[in-house]
Amino acid sequence: MNRLANPELKEPAKQGSAMGSAKSRLTWIWSEYSVIIAFVIIFILAAIVSPRFLDINNQLNILMQVSIIGIVALGMTVVMLSGGIDLSVGSVLALVGVLTVLALNATGSILVGILTALASGVIIGLLNGLLVAKGKIASFIATLGMMAGARSIALYIAEGGSISGEVSGFTAIANTELWVIDVPIIIFILMAVLVYMLMHKTSFGRHVYALGSNEKAALLSAIRVDRVKIAVYSLAGLLVSVAAIIETSRLNSISSSSSGMQYELDAIAAVIIGGTRMTGGRGKVIGTFFGVLILGILNNMMNLMNVSPHLQGFVKGAIIIVAVVFQKRE
């Protein structure tokens, strides 16, 4: 029976596997690059719907608008890859902004202002990390607490209002162009490249993926899981402080009540659209980059088409859900 069956079977089996591999290749491309494909489709749609969309100034405008949320979303990606979440980013951005302006006005030095921002961002991130890693508090809860706490302190310091910088030159950070490109765009792209390198080319990145995928196995693989967690939240804090510097510098002021409001939601949305799994272990920095761009184009498109700002949230919400539904189809 064997002898009869085998020669006949060989040929169709080969063809079948060739077809199968073509199909599996297609599904692989889809699962790896679905965000980019979605980005291209939305980009083309936007160009068709509104001729002004392709204008170079409009394009740069979009990039400028997404750069702050983009930098925050890069940190959020790392946190979510590790299996956590950071709800505090928006409030921390406001608090860091307030502290930065205070330091700036007190010393008159832009450098001190920037260092204050970076230090306070890292310290708050470190605190988040300690709560999660050493305090063994679920990241959702720990950063929810930080979200409320940081906002409250920002409001208290600024007495509920905005505070403005009194040092000339600070506004140059966000309002200068190199050739035609605004500095915040350059910072965003630079940060994206750095975070990409960190996550995909270093052992730290490998440890974060391992931790997000299977914490116990990561620990049993001799990974310093606690330290990785603390580093992850500290990094997110650092990136928030970079975003805070840009935000503060853009208008030379920061509002303790409205700055950074709901940034955590936009950042999480960008990460999710970018294909990172909520529970960690799977996702890509490039995905987040395009996720941010998709959100930016959608906003821009709706503005160009005069869609009521009150409806824009609805569209954003729908896009997030559609994105996740598509990603489930692997």
Binding site: T202, S203, R206, G212, N214, K216, A217, A218, L220, S221
Partner: peptide, 28 residues
């Protein structure tokens, strides 16, 4: 539950406990 990291590739699972060996100027 305890050993494999199912989201990492076969190669990356192999090297996970000895990454310092693959470190060249901070990059793997």
């Amino acid at each position: 539950e305890n050993a494999i990291i199912k989201d990492l590739s076969v190669i990356h699972n192999m090297s996970l406990s000895s990454l310092s060996k693959f470190n060249r100027n901070g990059l793997l």
